[in-house]
Design a protein around this nucleic acid. Structure first.
Lengths: 254, 254
DNA sequence: GACGATCTGATTGTCAGACAATCATACTAT
DNA sequence: ATAGTATGATTGTCTGACAATCAGATCGTC
């Protein structure tokens, strides 16, 4: 695959700002600079790398976006753990630009939510379960307001992910859920029967999770997902259409 | 949740370079600048935004990292679709820094690979199936070389993802697979019986996918995943240990 | 001694201006 | 038609500067 039959490699001179960024990134990934520790001031970096401050600053900007470094209290630069939501937002934007369809999102989200709820059933602790019950209670109270229910639904699924105690699943499910959950509001607004079905599913899921009943939690999550897709279709939307940017306000505004 | 009881919002002055980046990003996301189209030269941006060139350049660096813009042929800046692998690499690095365990990776990867292969069984076309068959044939020929087999295994799973024709799944599975597949080589090196089992599983999966047999493809992917985890344990590794950086050379070197 | 006000140096964000290296292109000579 | 040359545009990098803000130290008052 790498053998192209060409004689020479493409020659690409790497600009200094890139090298600066790479060097700092390497230190962080190698844990020579721990998250929370200061990177050093621009002046120090200038001295260490032997380049101009502008160059250092451009390098810093490269890293800043990826979340590897972070301006602590406005000023000082410190290394940091890239937080999920930041990466997830980037991924979601990429999906938007690639014009993925609801069907693709639904398939992926369904698989991920089911896997997540199974792990939640296995690992949920008492306090997450309490949070989940509180969430369901709030949803019942808000049942007349589609926007509030949709918001609480998103939160519900985040709580399930938290209960799973699996950070990889948490990370993997976030981008697609960011994109697909906004559709909930649209569905609920059009279908009156949507809210009670959603609440029932949530309650059953919480029951199953709190009983550590993997099978039941899987089953109800699957039903929940199927409801959702049916709701989307009944609301008159085409599942093979690219996800419309109309739904995505919360993704596009940071 | 957003109600903190505080009277005033945190006041944060957004630096100009950030505003520049945001403005350009917005144009791209709103598709007013299409992927492939030029952003304009730095001089033009200076004029439009009314800021110094240094500021513009810092803003550009912010976007450059996320893959939204891209230097075409060395020089000119053009908008571009962020490519999967770039985002996936970032995600993988984040996972590394969060010190996720093999168990977390395995659970997530298993769920994703099963979901993916089911879609592959549904949507695979003749040419992807041919590619898969070629991959299996190569793997058989390379069966004495663990490194080559591991490489081909990674490729195999990417082909399955391609066959699924679901870009969300493709994107969601990549970060964890980037992290977990390097373990394959380690396992195969320690366990002689690993290679034939892997090849059998791959062959069965290709058979099932080419027959569009969802159930069988699911079953064999599950067995494949279980083999893998058992192999990891038999190789003397602890599934609850954070994924060791030793495995991650290919992730850390761009 | 506790507290607030003030001063001082360090640091960041932004700017103006410069120059070499490289690229795109048109032009020229063979 | 091809290779060489000249020219302007563009990027990468540097020098030097200044205002705004932050972290501490100092000071004065009670």
């Amino acid at each position: 695959m790498t053998e192209t039959g060409e004689k020479f490699d493409r020659i690409n001179a790497i600009p200094a700002y890139q090298l600066v960024a790479d060097a700092i990134e390497r230190e962080i990934l190698a844990r020579r600079i721990r998250p929370g520790e200061p990177i050093g001031t621009e002046a120090q970096l200038v001295k260490q790398f032997g380049v101009n401050r502008s160059t250092v600053r451009e390098g810093i900007r490269l890293l800043e976006q990826s979340g590897l470094i972070h301006r602590d209290s406005g000023r000082r630069l410190t290394a940091s753990l890239p937080h999920y939501s930041r990466l997830a937002t980037r991924m979601s934007r990429a999906m938007l630009l690639h014009e993925v369809t609801f069907r693709e999102l639904w398939e992926a989200t369904t698989a991920l939510e089911i896997a997540t709820v199974e792990q939640a059933a296995e690992h949920a602790t008492a306090d997450v379960i309490a949070e989940l019950q509180a969430n369901v209670a709030s949803t019942e109270q808000a049942s007349a307001d589609p926007a509030a229910v949709a918001e609480l639904d998103t939160q519900f699924h985040s709580l399930i992910a938290k209960a799973s105690q699996n950070r990889v699943l948490q990370l993997a499910r976030e981008p697609s859920s960011l994109l697909i959950f906004p559709t909930t509001e649209i569905i609920l607004r059009k279908l009156k029967e949507g809210v009670p079905r959603l609440i029932q599913a949530h309650r059953k899921i919480v029951d199953a999770v709190s009983r550590h009943d993997k099978e039941a939690s899987r089953l109800w999550m699957l039903r929940h997902a199927n409801d959702w897709r049916r709701g989307f279709e009944r609301a008159g939307k085409d599942v093979d259409q690219p996800i419309d940017r109309v739904y995505m306000k919360e993704v596009m505004t940071r």
